[in-house]
Every structure is written in C-alpha cells, then in structure tokens.
Amino acid sequence: MFEARLNNATTLKKILDAIKDLLNEGTFDCSDSGIQLQAMDNSHVSLVSLTLRSDGFDKFRCDRNLSMGMNLGSMAKILKCANNDDTVTIKAQDNADTVTFMFESQNQEKVSDYEMKLMNLDQEHLGIPETDYSCVVRMPAMEFARICRDLAQFSESVVICCTKEGVKFSASGDVGSANVKLAQTFNVDKEEEAIVIEMQEPVVLTFACRYLNAFTKATPLSNQVQLSMSADVPLVVEYRIAELGHIRYYLAPKIED
C-alpha cells in the first residue's frame, strides 16, 4: 500500500509544471524515504532529478518499494481538477497498474478521485556522484528566470562567466550582444534577495538557452536558485522545495566550435 498526502495541491501542481515541458512521462520511485524521479528529457540533452522526502508529506506510507510510470500530460489533466487549497492524496496498491489521486476540499464537502493508468517505462537510472564544483552561485530564482528569458532573444546560447566578484551572463547573435552582470551582494535585508558566490576556480561555460528556460519553469517552487558549475561537466540548476525536497536539472555545456 502506498499513500502520500499533501495538505495543499499547489505544491504538486508547481512540481508538475516544472517537469512536464521537458518530460512526456516519468517513473516515480517510491520508498519509505520518499519519492524520487530521475529522467532525461526527450532529446537526452538534460536530466531532471526530483526528490520529495517522506517527512515533508502530511501523511506518507509506503509498505513496499513501488515504481509508478506516469504520463505527465495525463497527470497534468488530473491535477487541473484540483483546487489549489485542496488536500491531495496519491494512493496505489502494491503491484497495481493504476494510481488514484484524491482531492478533498478544505471543508471536506467535496471529495473527488481520479484513477490513472500506470505505464511500464523502461528508464535507466544514472548514478550522479556528489561533486565539488568550481563555482556555486545562489541567486533569486526570479532574477535567473528573467535573465534567461531576456538573453534567449539574442542567441540560442548563453555564456556564463563566474568569478569571485560576480557572475556574467552573455549572449550574442544577429541583433547584437547582451551582457548581464550580477555582483555578489553583502548585507541584504532579505536572504531570498541575496546573490552569493562560492568560487574555487573561475569558470566560463556556454549553455543552450532553450533548456535553461525550461528549467526556470520551477521558479514558483523557490525564492532562490543554485547554479553549480565546473569546466566540462554538466551544470546543476537546483530549486529547493521548502520542507519537502528539491528539483535538480543537469545540462552539459555546449562545446565551442
């Protein structure tokens, strides 16, 4: 028996919004420690890794490890049927071929349940080692989304240059060139507005705007985003989900011609 409850459907809606543009389907691996999803996007250029800890749920029960392959488009249709303040419960029997989403209104007067067929997805899991990165940048998630959106107008690629003074995002194309420099902040009143750079070695890396923009669909989940970069290895874009877990996106740097 698997049962996971969140007192507010908004978080689950935001999580789905953060992955459904990159992935058509995904396997939710459930265990007593929580729910994990790892999947490459359709073109195998980026990797999505979602971790939701069991202690972040308002109720969590998982008697046996369970892998539930879901069509994310179908899941999105179902979650549209939930009000933001509904309690959402995800339920499945052991070895079941369906999953049930139950939505309960705050006053308990409306209870709906939607059963969805599970899919058998033959997805390979990749081992992602814990790595020390040359540069780790924490910045407001809204600011990162804005920069990715703005620079995508000028080029398919953005160059991220990180030194201990700051981080620079650049794009150049037929129209001209664009540069956005952010300095590390000191003594900001609100932690969520801070720009913090931890640098061992400066890095200059080029990434595809299209994927960075897809990652910023997670912006509503978190005030801050963390970018971890080293030469010649995938960038990690991490959004923490308060008290529940995180979503990480991995994207390989583009190779200069």
């Binding site: 195998h44 250029v45 990749l126 081992g127 299209r210 991995y250 390989a252 583009k254 190779i255």
Partner: peptide, 14 residues
Amino acid sequence: TSGQKNIGSFFAPK
C-alpha cells in the same frame, strides 16, 4: 542541438 553532448554520457548507469 549542435555542439551539445548527450547528458547520459556524463553519468554511469546505476
């Protein structure tokens, strides 16, 4: 995408 490596090539299968 040109100049873009497959993300799977950076990690070993589990």
